[in-house]
Amino acid sequence: MTSESISVIRIHDVLLVTMPPDPDDTSVTILQEKVLNAMERYRVKGLVLDISAVQTMDSFFARVVAETAQMVVLMGGKTVIAGMQPSVAITATQLGLTLGGALTALNADLALDMISDTFRRGR
């Protein structure tokens, strides 16, 4: 998995990143860089990190995600981690991994709802 293959997509006022099944340390570091650059460049309300494909999460990945979320908050946005697999959630809990200030959502759809008014469904 090369870092180039991870793309940061802006949809209206939200940045959307889809994580590959097994992200390595380099790619998550580059991802953070890309996200922060995009945050600066576009006027967005937040970041949706879709990890529904991720099967394993290690402490480094969790820390980078937590850091990124904190940075995004500092830059005036929200971070929502979306679609975590149950098995990943259990492992993360048992390892005591936390995601810092990041919010969580069952899927990218709900995550978008949480960040942007644009996507909020009419009720």
Partner: peptide, 10 residues
Amino acid sequence: ETISAVRLLG
């Protein structure tokens, strides 16, 4: 633990 795992899911 269960609660925090559920929260990780969103």
